[in-house]
């Protein structure tokens, strides 16, 4: 149920401005923390600006979509939708410079596969990745917990796909449209593109679904307005109609802006810049990262040793006590 979900309670936002503000604050926090000795005026020479971060996120969203489309075995749509949600949520609170989107992207997809019950093993999963698969496995598994933590463990996602099915059933039953199945290709296309926008964090899944259906209808020169106003909102919903019309209009205008891939030269520049300014503590290729992991491992070992030693002491003391008590031992 969407209205009672964590998605509705914690991860729906009022406007794009609110989202952008959150992203900006993540960016400034990062710079404050790691760029203390960089001057205020020259900080963006070294660090990414919030705008640049947005471009990077956008770029990896496109990556995410392509990766999912090419994934073998083919994955259900809801996995893609869920992965998109995770990815967007993560970069509302975190800076691109702290965690590289390339790594978070695959982790999001892997986690989405699990949550949406699309069963692939990690071996099967990394088989879809080019390059060093062992390293990719390490990255995904190391980041998985971090990702969940950053999502506050709110893992259930309501995607707009089932609402679309419901709307089509309803239109077929109560509407007067001829052959509503024709709407399907247009709807799906719309939803794919809507994932790239912030619409899924501003509007409820059913609103997105309705916008998609209406968009598909208008493309086919059909009109569903009477269905919406008279049947769907017929009883007691008149006063709410305005909200819906606004929402649908906003979603459709956002979708129009969705598909503009960033300039290739700009991407190259940004990639280089990010490579320089990314947090070495979270870069698996850096020495600091390796040292950190080693330290964690050592800590584990130390802990293990301490526990086993304790156990041994306890065992031997228990045995001593038993000596006089048990005649057979003596």
């Amino acid at each position: 149920m969407f209205p009672t979900s964590t998605q509705c309670k914690f991860w729906m936002f009022g406007s794009e401005e609110e989202l952008n503000k959150l992203r900006e604050s993540a960016n400034t926090k990062h710079i404050q923390r790691y760029g203390r000795n960089v001057g205020e005026s020259s900080k963006y020479d070294f660090f990414l600006t919030p705008e640049e971060e947005k471009i990077m996120v956008k770029r990896f969203e496109l990556h995410l979509r392509d990766f999912c489309k090419r994934f073998q075995p083919p994955m259900p749509r809801c996995v893609i939708g869920t992965a998109f949600h995770y990815f967007k949520r993560f970069y509302i609170r975190n800076s691109v410079m702290n965690y590289h989107p390339k790594e978070i992207m695959v982790t999001c997809i892997y986690l989405a596969c699990k949550v949406e019950e699309f069963n692939v093993s990690i071996q099967q999963f990394v088989a879809n990745i080019k390059g060093d698969r062992e390293k990719a496995t390490d990255i995904i598994l190391n980041n998985e917990l971090l990702l969940m933590e950053q999502l506050d463990f709110h893992l259930a996602i309501h995607n707009p796909y089932r609402p679309v099915e419901g709307l089509l059933i309803d239109i077929k039953t109560r509407g007067s449209l001829h052959d509503p199945e024709r709407l399907r290709p247009g709807t799906e296309q719309f939803l794919d593109r809507a994932l790239l926008t912030d619409a899924i964090m501003l509007y409820s899944p059913s609103q997105v679904a309705l916008a998609a259906v209406l968009h598909a209808a208008s493309k086919l020169q059909e009109n569903l307005d009477s269905y919406v106003t008279d049947i769907l909102f017929g009883e007691g919903g008149r006063d709410k109609l305005e909200i819906l019309i606004d929402a649908v209009r906003a979603i459709r205008s956002m979708e129009k802006m969705a598909d503009s891939p960033p300039d290739k030269n700009l991407i190259k520049v940004l990639d280089k810049k990010l490579e320089k300014c990314r947090n070495p503590e979270n870069n698996p290729d850096s020495e600091i990262y390796k040292k950190k992991m080693q330290a964690m491992l050592d800590e584990d070992d130390d802990l293990y040793n301490a526990i086993s030693q304790q156990n041994q002491i306890r065992d031997s003391s228990a045995l001593n006590m038993s000596l006089p008590a048990s005649p057979e031992v003596a």
């Binding site: 149920m1 969407f2 209205p3 509705c8 729906m12 936002f13 009022g14 406007s15 609110e18 309501h158 089932r162 609402p163 679309v164 099915e165 419901g166 709307l167 059933i169 309803d170 501003l202 509007y203 409820s204 899944p205 059913s206 609103q207 679904a209 309705l210 769907l232 919903g237 709410k240 909200i243 819906l244 929402a247």
Partner: peptide, 19 residues
């Protein structure tokens, strides 16, 4: 039922009023 419910639920959703 589930599909229909999900299609209708949250159609009045708005965050702006509360903010």
């Amino acid at each position: 039922m589930r599909a229909l419910q999900e299609a209708m639920m949250g159609l009045y959703h708005t965050k702006k009023v509360q903010c």
